[in-house]
Computed example of a mutant assay.
Amino acid sequence: MTAKTFTSGRIREADYDAGSQQLDLRFDNGSILAYKHVPAEVFRRLCSAPNPATYWEDRIAEEYPKGEPRLKKAGAPGKSLSDLFREADDTDGTDGSGS
C-alpha cells in the first residue's frame, strides 16, 4: 500500500493499494471515502496535483464506485473481531446461565 500525506487543503491523507486498486481518502473533517477500480496513474496524478481536492472532485468522486474504507477515522479506536463477536456473558460480568 502506498500512502501520501497532504499538509493543506481538505484531503489530509491518501492510501492506495495497487493490488486491489482501492483508493482511501481521509479528509480534514475526519471523514474517509474509499473508491474501487482506481488506476495507479490516477493516484499518481492526485498526489502531484496542485490542489488534490479539486482533482478528486473533477476526476475521482463521480468516476469510480465507492468501496469500504480500510483506513480508520482519526482518534477512533479500532475494534477487533473478538470485540465484535464477544458473547453477552463476556460483557455483563455474568456467566450467562441466568442464576
Rank of each mutant, 00 (worst) to 15 (best):
Met1Gln: 09
Met1His: 08
Thr2Gly: 00
Thr2Cys: 01
Thr2Lys: 09
Ala3Asp: 07
Lys4Gln: 13
Thr5Cys: 03
Phe6Gln: 03
Thr7Gly: 12
Ser8Cys: 09
Arg10His: 10
Arg10Gln: 14
Arg10Asp: 07
Ile11Glu: 03
Glu13Lys: 15
Ala14Asp: 02
Ala14Thr: 13
Asp15Ala: 10
Asp15Thr: 12
Tyr16Thr: 11
Tyr16Gly: 02
Tyr16Phe: 13
Ala18Met: 02
Ala18Tyr: 03
Ala18Gln: 10
Gly19Ala: 02
Gln22Ser: 08
Leu23Thr: 09
Arg26Phe: 11
Arg26Met: 10
Phe27Met: 12
Phe27Arg: 06
Asn29Cys: 09
Asn29Asp: 15
Ser31Met: 14
Ser31Asn: 13
Ile32Gln: 01
His37Cys: 08
His37Lys: 15
Val38Pro: 08
Val38Phe: 13
Pro39Gln: 01
Ala40Tyr: 01
Val42Gly: 02
Val42Lys: 08
Phe43Tyr: 15
Phe43Gln: 12
Leu46Thr: 14
Cys47Thr: 15
Ser48His: 14
Ala49Trp: 15
Pro50Glu: 13
Asn51Ile: 14
Pro52Arg: 15
Pro52Ser: 14
Pro52Lys: 12
Pro52Met: 13
Tyr55Glu: 14
Trp56Tyr: 15
Glu57Met: 15
Glu57Gly: 13
Asp58Phe: 11
Arg59Pro: 11
Ile60His: 10
Ala61Lys: 15
Glu62His: 09
Pro65Leu: 12
Pro65Phe: 11
Pro65Cys: 13
Gly67Leu: 03
Gly67His: 09
Glu68Gly: 00
Lys72Ala: 11
Ala74Lys: 05
Gly75Glu: 07
Pro77Leu: 01
Gly78Cys: 00
Gly78Met: 02
Leu81Ala: 04
Leu84Thr: 03
Phe85Ser: 04
Arg86Cys: 00
Arg86Ser: 06
Glu87Ala: 07
Ala88Pro: 06
Ala88Gln: 06
Asp89Met: 02
Asp92Trp: 08
Asp92Val: 05
Thr94Phe: 07
Asp95Trp: 00
Asp95Glu: 04
Asp95Ile: 00
Ser97Pro: 02
Gly98Trp: 07
Gly98Ile: 11
